[in-house]
Amino acid sequence: MSNPHAGISGPGFLYSVEDGWGHLQLDRPDAGNRVGLEMLVAMTELLRTEPQHAGVLLISAAGKDFCLGRERAEQTTPVTPFDAFRPVAAFYRALSEFPGLTIAAVQGRATGFGVGMALRTDLCLAADDASFTLDEIPHGIPPMFVLSELVDHLHPKHLMEMILTGRTVAAPEALAMGLVSRTAPAAELLPTARDTAAGLAGPKAPLVASCKQYIRQIRAVPHASRLDAALSAQTLYAVGN
């Protein structure tokens, strides 16, 4: 498979493609894998171009923590709030709109932006020692980006409590709440995630992408009309394949 992005090193991350699935690894372990602006922009561009090469994308991180949020201290030139937040929105949009399956492998701490990144993947595998913290409210910042996705994951009372208190949620509770897909022993997390990515790539990738697209579409269909929508979608898939 020819891929110009196989085995590249970007600002703060590594990327490779293997047998039809891509692996994006955050690589700033000494900084808690915090995401700076240059790193954010480069990863956004990667997400926009890689669907032609990778049907499944795994996001993991080097070191003991997944991601402690954004690098807030790097801004040296004053910009408007809109311009400051626009790269974040662009990254989240590119991740959410990635047509293939996206998988997060979360170890250690995920905070703020790290939680938002994990939320926007289709599958989230967490180490049994992982934790999730939304600390924006305690710092006086409303977490609008995370809330835009979190409302689809949590019961309203879990949502409000986690957002407003900023308390840390450990992996077992995160699993029970619906923040993660499943947990694994820390030593087995990355091998499990890699096996999952490999098992859903290759010949299965188009089927996986069709299921992902259909799940998004069917949510918007009234319940009484869902069987008709399912009949149409099933027929179109059969004809196209």
Rank of each mutant, 00 (worst) to 15 (best):
V56L: 03
A94L: 13
A54C: 09
L200A: 04
E173H: 12
L200W: 00
P87M: 12
M43N: 03
C124D: 07
L24P: 07
A238W: 10
V41F: 14
L24G: 08
R109Y: 15
A84V: 12
F66V: 01
E50T: 04
P11F: 11
S96F: 02
Y92G: 07
S60K: 02
A233C: 05
L57F: 03
M144D: 06
T44I: 08
A171V: 06
T192M: 11
H5E: 04
E38W: 02
A104R: 11
G20C: 03
A174F: 14
L147T: 04
A174G: 14
L164C: 14
K204D: 06
K157C: 11
H153P: 11
F145A: 11
L125G: 04
M160E: 10
I8M: 09
A90T: 15
V239F: 08
M160I: 10
A127M: 06
G100R: 01
G108W: 08
G178K: 07
V169S: 04
R34H: 02
S9Y: 00
Q75D: 11
P206E: 08
L164S: 15
H53V: 00
Q107C: 10
R226N: 10
L46H: 02
H53R: 12
P29D: 08
Q213P: 02
G178E: 09
T133G: 09
V151K: 15
H158S: 14
G112L: 09
E97K: 00
T80V: 11
P4A: 09
F145N: 07
A197K: 03
L227K: 13
D30F: 04
F66G: 00
A62N: 04
D19R: 00
A6V: 09
E97G: 02
S9F: 00
Q213Y: 05
P11I: 07
P87T: 13
H223D: 15
D195C: 01
T192D: 14
L159F: 13
L68Q: 12
F13V: 03
V35Y: 03
G100F: 02
A130G: 07
E97R: 00
K64L: 08
L200T: 01
G55P: 01
I137C: 06
A61W: 01
Q75W: 10
G116M: 05
L200K: 01
I103H: 02
Y15K: 00
T102L: 10
L95Q: 11
G7P: 03
